[in-house]
Amino acid sequence: MANRTLELRSAVPELSRNSRIGRQDGPARLVVSEMTGLSVVSIAARKGQSGSLQGAVKKLFKIELPNTPRRVEAGGVAFLWAGPDQWIAITDMAVHPDFDRELVAKLGKFASFTDQGDARTLIRVSGPASREVIATGVPLDLHPRAFQPDDVALTHASHIAVTIWQIDEEPTFVFAVARGFARSFWHWLSDSGSVHGIEVSPGT
């Protein structure tokens, strides 16, 4: 089994340390942190194997693979819809360091897997101003009537392709951004959020 013997580096250095950005008075109305230490794997069902894959995943992970833009989590593994017959699986890298190989070994008959753990930067955004700030870049209706915890959307944020999902009603949203664009994404988020005061806490 391989190790991560080389140092890992965030694509957004600004998210690696505590800071308060923008408006300084009052509590920060936007809280941002990078989610690090995760394994992420893309899954695409083989032709005609979608049903078998769903059955096998149910057996292995006690999860119904969603057929609509939703996220389902159990036992520390989350599966997110990522397009027709496609998903991404996210889990703790410390527990599943070679998650893609694990999945290939267990489910390789039914689907193709591609390691994406390094391809995306995951950024968590919460706080009372989060919907307002996100609306400046994401052309989606995130009103509680339209978007709820565990809803997922593939869209763009400030012209950058993202996957976005909600994890709680606080509300907390997570963005998965292509690593190369993560810094530009942060520039947009921090510019738009400054008026509300942003608290950055280092990766978790």
């Binding site: 833009p69 989606l140 593939l154 869209t155």
Partner: peptide, 9 residues
């Protein structure tokens, strides 16, 4: 698959 979206997507 994704719902109602703006032209720019």
């Amino acid at each position: 698959h994704c719902g109602n979206r703006s032209l720019d997507e």
